[in-house]
Nucleic acid binder design. Sequence first.
DNA 1: GCATTACCTGTCATTTCTTACAGTACTGTA
DNA 2: TACAGTACTGTAAGAAATGACAGGTAATGC
Lengths: 248, 248
Amino acid sequence: MAIICCQELISSLTRAETVDEIHLTCSELCEQLGFDRFLYGSMIPTTFNKPHFIYISNYPAEWRARYESENYMGIDPVVTHCASHITPVTWDYITQMGQQDENTRQFMYEAKGFGLNSGISIPVHTPQGEFAIFNLSSIQNNSYTNKHILQVMPHAQLFTAYVHEAVRRVFANDILPLGQVNLTRREKECLLWVADGKTAWETSQILGVSERTIVFHMQNSAEKLNVVNRAQTVARAVSLGLITPQLA
Amino acid sequence: MAIICCQELISSLTRAETVDEIHLTCSELCEQLGFDRFLYGSMIPTTFNKPHFIYISNYPAEWRARYESENYMGIDPVVTHCASHITPVTWDYITQMGQQDENTRQFMYEAKGFGLNSGISIPVHTPQGEFAIFNLSSIQNNSYTNKHILQVMPHAQLFTAYVHEAVRRVFANDILPLGQVNLTRREKECLLWVADGKTAWETSQILGVSERTIVFHMQNSAEKLNVVNRAQTVARAVSLGLITPQLA
DNA sequence: GCATTACCTGTCATTTCTTACAGTACTGTA
DNA sequence: TACAGTACTGTAAGAAATGACAGGTAATGC
């Protein structure tokens, strides 16, 4: 039955138009999968110089505040894992892995104090360079829910992907001028060759235009991306997924 | 029961040490979820100038050959979708979306001729810039298996993530010197500021060293990454996930 | 017709990067 | 102790990028 429920929730996510709707759907999933708390947090690059952080959660406010003020994101082992992996992970596993690390032990212990005893974390990585985490947690103990956690994992993971796409859709016209930068065909071509180590002159020979034209296109790209020089231009273009140097 | 099976298969993936073991596990999943064919294909960036393509599949050899010789990857609507999305997709959906596009219709029709009638495709995107697709397909018709497909989707997606990690592990010591480049702390710091548009002099002021030292670290980074200039260095570092400019 | 956009080209002064030469100093490991 | 790795610094010439001026064509839509 849980399977059917997830399909319905995902279906409602694809129609969601506000953060509240997404929040509600997450709450329902949380309940149906037998968890108490959820937190969706994402880091979305923008054309400005700082990424946008978006949170949707029913975590205890005190824990959120403490996490923020102590800058726990830097030491949170769950974040560290999710930043470099694509597989969901149980907090049980995280705790075991970080057994010898004092920071990790202390952190997980403190989280338990706020009712975040066991749970899972699901990473999201998009080709646009976005990074998100979806946490589902329970006040119950590890050993009790571990088997259950493994069973719901697949559904939680699929749901997570749709949450992220819903968030992108909701915020697209609202706050974020994210991957919305429209580079012209020529600008992308220039960027690809420059990101591949070619100089402006070399690129001009490849594309059969003058060196000045390459400089021109690179300048336009930089302006659109709101950056100041060539290195930053390719860095931004790559991290926004506007070009994929390795495929060229 | 399918749930339990997937857990076991995933568990065996985490232990897999050869391509054949992965192939076998995929075959079993394929069977257990009621599909005939599977194809795992991935594009993994390397420190060399061309990415590595890895395929594990039991697709018909004739179709694979035709796909290759006709360079279908460029027009395959499934690849196009998966390149920019993180959610799994049914071929039914792809077909509907591409109804007005002659290329898409032709392509999907031809695939059916090889017994690839219906199926799902699951995209994988890693923070290291890797891109993979896992296809599961059936010789049966759309309408018959569509509901079934939605039910197995979550398990297939979770499985896919583990397939990819298994492939990375198997090929890590074998062919690919991929994200294995070890940049030092200082090199990453320099890269981050340079990718953020800072000149060598500006970076030197930020890090409290001489301009020459920044140049030195950038040179070492470039050598490790096998690239020729600064633009390519940051492009490569970003696309390999060695630095994440937006988080800095 | 006119505005807009993509695309293209030129020169020149200045800044920045790249490369090649030369070193010192500290660390952990074989 | 020798060695490899990391971090750091200097000079100098030539290559490349940047910024600020200038100009143009072709296609599109109102």
